[in-house]
Nucleic acid binder design. Structure first.
Lengths: 216, 216
DNA sequence: TTTACTTTGTTAAAAAAATAACATACTTTA
DNA sequence: TAAAGTATGTTATTTTTTTAACAAAGTAAA
């Protein structure tokens, strides 16, 4: 299926989830096929770019028809590795950690949320979406018994690096970082920084450019 | 302060929040100045790119010293319009809406969280971070009395477009969209899609490329 | 004061990304 | 079966973005 052995350009990786999202919506529509032009309207990318992106991975379209929605959806899922199972834990059972625990969308992406940890004894033992909050002191013991690939970090900034070091020592391969700390990790451990306020930054920036911020 | 009248390239807008985040961390360090090389290490961008990005907005550096951390932090905040006040409401008091209600980081970006709405009568009246959850039926009345620029949308997908239409009719200028729906809005209303699982998609994609997904 | 060093801001060059254009292949209709 | 129409996949072109290079300006040390 993979047409290229070379690394997928970051810029394409960033668009894949957008295609995936749109295709998921289209799946529940009455149509079976979608053209690059339709996708252009829905994504805001040009049809040319969309065809080019998709052709990077193979030949999915059907001339004069477009792309089979279901087929393309599955293909893009596979390209992103959603067909492979990945265990996930959440560190930090605060408001954000809790919201992530209730997040739907893990399963279809191949993620299995296995545990939630916190240091606060008041929270330990509480059930969040059917998962018992575990004691952060038991982290190493747990990771020794259960192979976990990814950890979501929703803890205080000042604890972020320390917990990261422990996670790495225990063999975690990737961190979904919701803290405001720039984590130091070895090159082989992936970090995905999720700047929660990024969207607000963009909006503020664009509102300013549109002169929406003058009097209010 | 603004050097250019032309629109800031999207690609630079995307990097501004990263600079902002790093500078905020640096502010609480002992150093007063930071060089583009230091910033390169912290951001992962090249020092050349950083100098170019910053020079797009003006001349902030000091030769052979680098950039005054506090000064640059404030400048970038201003460039993004954080010095202008923006009222914000949250639609949807579920787990995610709740997490957003507790989000710190509004104030320093010039956002004032003014209200939270929900349709669920069990939630209406409840206090979340000192804000009483309001009845979504009162949305128009509220917006008629209070000027609100931005609405965060943390509701079910199937209600998303309907609520969006109401928000737009009531004069909202920007939507921070956490739903999985591609919202249809007039060109002058900004939409910032926050695909909550985007980070997981990227991680899955990269883990796959690093051959971390084979056996597990 | 002079020399060596540092780091910016900017220009030039290279690389990457996006767009436009179009030949090809398939579909539909007559 | 032929003609008209559609939409892909790919190549060529343009545009954007990034990197590299360096002069200019300031600092620090001798």
């Amino acid at each position: 299926m993979a047409k290229h052995k070379t690394k997928i350009p970051q810029i394409i990786i960033r668009r894949l989830p957008v295609y995936y999202k749109i295709l998921k919506q289209l799946k529940s529509s009455s149509k079976d096929y979608v053209s690059s032009q339709d996708l252009a309207k829905l994504t805001g990318f040009s049809s040319s770019l969309i065809r080019k992106d998709l052709s990077y991975f193979g030949t999915f379209g059907r001339k004069s028809y477009g792309y089979d929605i279901c087929c393309l959806f599955n293909q893009i899922g596979q390209i992103m590795g959603f067909d492979k199972q990945k265990n996930l834990i959440i560190i930090g059972a605060g408001h954000l950690g809790r919201a992530l625990a209730y997040n739907r969308g893990y399963q279809e992406r191949g993620y299995n949320l296995k545990a939630v940890f916190d240091k606060n004894s008041k929270l330990i033992g509480e059930k969040i979406n059917n998962l018992k909050v575990r004691d952060i002191n038991d982290l190493e013991k747990y990771l020794g018994n259960t192979p976990i690939l990814v950890a979501a970090l929703t803890i205080d900034n000042n604890a972020a690096q320390k917990i990261t070091d422990r996670l790495i020592a225990a063999g975690i391969k990737a961190i979904w970082n919701f803290t405001n700390v720039s984590l130091k990790t070895p090159a082989e451990v992936l970090v995905e920084d999720q700047i929660i306020n990024q969207g607000l930054c963009h909006l503020s920036c664009k509102l300013k450019q549109n002169d929406c911020l003058e009097f209010h």
